[in-house]
Nucleic acid binder design. Structure first.
Lengths: 338, 338
DNA sequence: TTGACAAATGATTGCGCAATCATTTAAGGT
DNA sequence: ACCTTAAATGATTGCGCAATCATTTGTCAA
């Protein structure tokens, strides 16, 4: 009752093992009748190729490696969901590495991932260490960086510009009449930094930037932290009239803090989040946020990797900027306030 | 510049290849001096074992397969985070399969996973199809079911009783004085069903059960859906004075709906969520919820699998019930209401 | 009918490692 | 010093497959 091999299938079909291998991997190279015979034998015996043997013989696996900073962050959960959606039916497999927002962990993880001889690699962000970048450049497979188009890609990239997205959102808040707009940020990973840069740029354009209005922490993001950050900001700058938040958790937490302090949103405090994860849109009042195409980023990244396995993509297909969508809701709409 | 092999390391160290293999895999079987020599050669050449060749030769991989219903659900994101935390340093690798809450998808995924010759398997829930269960039973590796201790395990299990957890929470609500307690549930996967059963049991004990107060939908869970479900419930039963929610998203959405309807929490409507994901605790007022040890479940599942790889565990270690923690907050505390 | 050529199929080899069995070396007792 | 036994190390083989090269079969034109 052991697993059938190519030889077993060959005997069943009355042909050689290598022909079976070809019939399965390059069906167009064998005659129609042969293909039918082989498929019948495969089905009868329940043959399934041994991935380890195939990987050893061909020196390439069916693995697409994927490096994410965290599972618990919904953003990457969505990216993963998109990636798994796209991998379906391609015959490839995703192997996830979690690096806990640590560039150093990434540096030790990459050699392990590379050791699997992946056919493709998808990594979050563009801010790898020098050594990680070298490993990625030397990798014998296509590499897709995801999330972030603010820098040039090593090979291919899909995402959006965090600084542009933030600048757009803050520009909108200025347009709505807010003048003392604070920034609340937790974690402050590279993408958060870029959002903060976009925030700064938009304010500097109008001569409204005040460094004192930026309150950040290295601790990880949560609704609870959002409340604390707003409290800190208000202690420093009681005249602050709006906040742009690094992400939706912070925004939601800040909104709850406003409720506890009886600050009316948006009259006393305008709020804009980032990512538009769902809760923000359902709050009372509903919070404005910047929707980011997370699922789509995962999907496209896998598609790019799979395409690139059969040869390099043309230059114009190597960079995909999916943009974002500013979703304006009550929390920044000063116009409707009496 | 190709990858060094065991033979290369052996030559460098002046010993045979197989001794190198042993020095690395069973260090206690070689002499101290040999181990030192080999380690030096390994380091000098930067040798890394080829996993495909090892898998082929030994007929076993270093893979622990893990089947989850979804990435986007924070519950499983936390379980995965715990699992990845525990796998660190064990030399094993996690291979994730996402089955999108579909038992049928699971059935087609499992053979693929099994084909990797995993050394362990971790699957969510106890409600696999008959065929899936057969595959798991015949699997040549330890199997850990996670999340749910409401049924007997196929092999090992770690989680908690969803029905007991729900019954405890609803019992608490009854104790606080609520009498017309509704149930709001989305997705209604097997674990949701068990929570609903626990809800029912607690109410039946006091003669308070009314089937009309159960409002559910098959659509997936979200804050938005929580609001709709409460609206539906109130349309049917305006006298409802509290709700036990299938999860925190539903609870938070229902709480927002209360705010929109000017229903005071908990005076007009008591609310209890499930999982205690963070947002609920920060709301205004803060929502009661049932904390579930998700990260710990992932961690323990990997630990169990790794232990069981070296031989079956004693019976008393094969079932781990981590329990839950009812976290009572303002949203069910009728006592403090004037 | 034959020859030229392409399409289809087959035989051989080795990928890098671990299992198995064989051999050597060291340790301990008398 | 000698033998016994265990510990340490080595030689050989095959895991299941794909790459490479070799051979057969089929097709078509002259």
């Amino acid at each position: 009752m052991k697993k059938p091999t190519l030889v077993d299938v060959g005997q069943e079909a009355g042909v050689s093992a290598i022909t079976v291998s070809r019939a399965l991997r390059q069906p167009e190279k064998v005659s129609d009748s042969m293909r039918a015979k082989v498929n019948a034998a495969v089905k009868k015996l329940g043959y399934v190729p041994d991935v380890a043997a195939a990987a050893l013989a061909s020196k390439r696996s069916n693995i697409i490696g994927m490096v994410v900073p965290s599972f618990s962050n919904n953003v990457f959960a969505d990216v993963l969901a998109g990636a798994y959606d796209a991998i379906e039916g391609t015959g490839f497999t995703i192997q996830i590495g979690n690096v806990n927002y640590s560039a150093l962990t990434e540096e030790t993880l990459l050699p392990n991932l590379l050791n699997l001889r992946p056919v493709g690699l998808i990594v979050a962000g563009v801010d790898q260490t020098r050594r990680s970048k070298e490993l990625l450049k030397m990798a014998a497979c296509p590499v897709v960086q995801v999330m972030d188009t603010d820098s040039d890609p090593l090979d291919m990239i899909v995402g959006f510009s965090h600084s542009d997205a933030a600048a757009t959102a803050v520009g909108h808040m200025i347009d709505m009449g807010f003048r003392r707009i604070g920034f609340l940020g937790a974690r402050m990973d590279p993408r958060s930094q870029k959002r903060m840069a976009g925030y700064r740029y938009a304010l500097e354009q109008r001569g409204l930037f005040d460094p004192a209005l930026q309150v950040t922490t290295q601790s990880s993001s949560s609704v609870s932290v959002g409340g604390h950050l707003l409290a800190d900001l208000l202690a420093i700058a009681p005249d602050c009239d709006a906040i742009f938040c690094n992400n939706d958790d912070i925004a939601v937490g800040a909104a709850f803090e406003c409720q506890r302090r009886n600050l009316a949103i948006p009259r006393d405090m305008g709020i804009c989040g980032f990512n538009d994860l769902g809760t923000a849109a359902e709050m009372h009042p509903r919070l404005s946020s910047v929707f980011t195409p997370r699922f789509e980023i995962g999907r496209r990244a896998v598609e790019m990797a799979v395409r690139a396995i059969n040869g390099p993509l043309p230059a114009e297909d190597r960079i995909v900027d999916l943009g974002v969508e500013l979703r304006v809701r009550a929390s920044t709409n000063l116009a409707n306030v009496s």
